[in-house]
């Protein structure tokens, strides 16, 4: 059969010659290879001390963003839950009561917002689906490991952005993660 490319190697079942059957040259060759690696530069990153540089588009732990005034952006529209292929997101909507305007940006808000981290596959579709730019996957925070099943469900208490980061944020964008910036840069710009 005609080979399509010249990259594939033809397998032959020819008898090994005496020299080959001795295996010793091959063994010595193998030893040489391993010895070469012995002196090669090590690739180990000593994790807690050293950290691997994260990619800008890394999809880490979720965050529910607040706006510049510290109000939650989420309106509990449910698009994220619909978009989620792993059905990890669930929420309960509630109406904003008078006096809560400083808490929620819209009249409707998510009273409960939960992500099951065991289900989540960190695909980022929720982020894409969100019309309010409320949910983001952070590029610098990893989802931690769990010790009990109760820990797996992340509620709003652990998802919503803390107020401190708002205060230090210079702009909508500056308080966001690299991922936010990237998304904005690439294709969210046109949406506003």
């Amino acid at each position: 059969m005609q080979a399509l490319t010249n990259r594939s190697k033809r397998v032959s079942n020819k008898k090994l010659s005496l020299g080959e059957r001795l295996y010793l040259p091959a063994v010595v060759g193998g030893l040489g290879i391993t010895l070469k690696h012995f002196f090669k530069k090590k690739v180990t990153i000593q994790y807690p001390e050293e950290q691997r540089p994260m990619s800008e588009v890394y999809r880490g732990l979720h965050v529910l963003k607040r706006d510049e005034q510290g109000r939650e952006r989420c309106t509990a529209c449910g698009l994220c839950a619909v978009a989620c292929p792993a059905e990890a997101i669930s929420m309960t909507a509630a109406e904003r009561q008078p006096g809560e305007e400083n808490l929620y940006r819209e009249e409707k808000y998510a009273a409960v917002y939960e992500i099951n981290m065991l289900r989540c596959i960190f695909c980022g579709l929720c982020e894409e689906a969100c019309p309010k730019s409320a949910i983001y996957l952070q590029s610098d925070k990893l989802a931690p490991s769990f010790y009990s099943r109760a820990d797996v469900i992340y509620g709003k208490d652990r998802l919503v952005q803390s107020m401190e980061t708002i205060k230090t944020a210079k702009s909508l964008k500056s308080g966001l993660t690299t991922s936010d910036r990237y998304v904005d840069k690439v294709w969210k710009n046109g949406k506003y």
Partner: peptide, 13 residues
């Protein structure tokens, strides 16, 4: 240690 070195690792440290 040797295993690490040969596999381009550091080994126990």
């Amino acid at each position: 240690k040797v295993a690490g070195f040969i596999q381009d690792r550091l080994g126990p440290n």
